[in-house]
Design a protein around this nucleic acid. Structure first.
Lengths: 126, 126
DNA sequence: CCGGATCCTTGCCGATACTG
DNA sequence: CAGTATCGGCAAGGATCCGG
């Protein structure tokens, strides 16, 4: 479980540690920009600017910030070509690909239910 | 695609509309609290307080806020029993269940890669 | 037990400017 | 082209109180 924390009993000590780590990772990854970046990378490798073009509306700052975070967690690999002008490429790692599949699932789900959601909203907004 | 917006050409007008709607939904749903609530609900129906107990660390305010949002988008159903004290139950709808499956995928992924991520972090933090 | 409203703090995020 | 740093506004979110 990611939702619940176990407290108290000593033999569950590493369970709580694993859980709080899980929660931390989840908090990192389960945000709009991170997920959109992962989806954008897909199976290709993209340059910094290319990712920015794919992920509509993201700012320079948020992009670097999230890319760093994803790199730190071993989800994307960062390759710097020491040319001029610099060329920096980002690729999903193996685990990153795994996560991407679930993210793609979310995207698919979103598109499949656009209609249902639009209806639900209209009903709710009255 | 959820990441990219099409601009300009008129025949893509409804595509851009669908896309911006998709982006809006994605922004709603792809946040830590919403996903944790969905995962907590699972296939059971829970009372307000029970959800709060499951989703560790969520505040009263965030919980109501996100439950409203999920209800508005037709992902959870809200049932009020006019008793005293009041009893309010929340259940995932059909589409909500569909989304939940992908969320569970994310949770599973997180747990499967705890080790990898911990290692990656240690390497990065040096 | 729930939900809404209000205040108040925190930190997210965009804008800008500067380095390599 | 890519990254870092700084600043400032504004919205997210926590604490609390009251009302059904």
């Amino acid at each position: 479980m990611v939702t619940k924390q176990y407290k108290g009993s000593p033999e569950e000590a590493d369970l709580t540690r694993a859980d709080s780590l899980a929660r931390e990772i989840f908090s990192d990854v389960a945000n709009k920009w991170a997920l959109l970046i992962i989806e954008a990378l897909g199976e290709r490798t993209l340059r910094f600017g290319e990712v920015r073009d794919e992920v509509d509306g993201i700012s320079h700052k948020m992009l670097t910030q999230n890319l760093r975070m994803l790199e730190r967690n071993g989800l994307v690999e960062r390759n710097v070509h020491p040319t001029v002008p610099p060329r920096v490429e980002y690729t999903l790692t193996g685990p990153g690909q795994g996560l991407r599949e679930t993210v793609s699932g979310m995207c698919d789900w979103t598109h499949r239910h656009l209609g249902h959601i639009e209806d639900a909203r209209r009903r709710f907004d009255t």
